[in-house]
Amino acid sequence: MQCVLLGAVTELRATTHTIEFPYTRTLGPVIGSFFTGLRDRRILGIRAGDRVLVPPLEYDPETGDALKPDFVEVGPAGTVTSWSWVTKPTRKHPLDRPFGFALIRLDGADTAMVHAVDAGSIDRMQTGMRVTPRWRDERKGRIDDIECFVPEGGAA
């Protein structure tokens, strides 16, 4: 690429600039424990009164009160309480083929968490269906350590 500056022909130089956030941070005692659990293939909820919240929060959404880090292992299987069917996944979605986004209430939990369900076809999706996680072989302590959920009793 060239441009003309004051009559002189000047070569434009291209430089590569990578935007980065060069720092690390702790996820705190609640989210941190949740993700450490995922790395070990365990899903943790937090007690909020009589309820178990999954994913765990640092506060009770009903009262705003801080919650003690009192964790309960839940799942790993659960029940779909509502769902949608994505026909054209974006490049940000967990799967590159049609899949369901679902609210999944894990066994032992009182709230539902969002995740993808690899059911193969919309015909296999229904409210109340049972699903179980498909774990990644290499887990990093992230929500997508669970690659997705699959219908219980046989992957798509």
């Binding site: 996820l27 989210i31 993700f35 994913p55 309480t81 509502s82 769902w83 949608s84 069917w85 994505v86 974006t90 940000k92 979605h93 967990p94 986004f101 679902a102 609210l103 968490m113 969002v114 995740h115 993808a116 409210t127 992230r142 929500i143 997508d144």
Partner: peptide, 24 residues
């Protein structure tokens, strides 16, 4: 940023889940 953004959970997908709950 921890449990939803990494899944690319978009507004149409979330609205569809809400619509399904209402239909059900």
């Amino acid at each position: 940023p921890y449990t939803l953004t990494p899944l690319g959970f978009d507004p149409v997908s979330s609205a569809a889940i809400q619509a399904r709950a209402l239909l059900d």
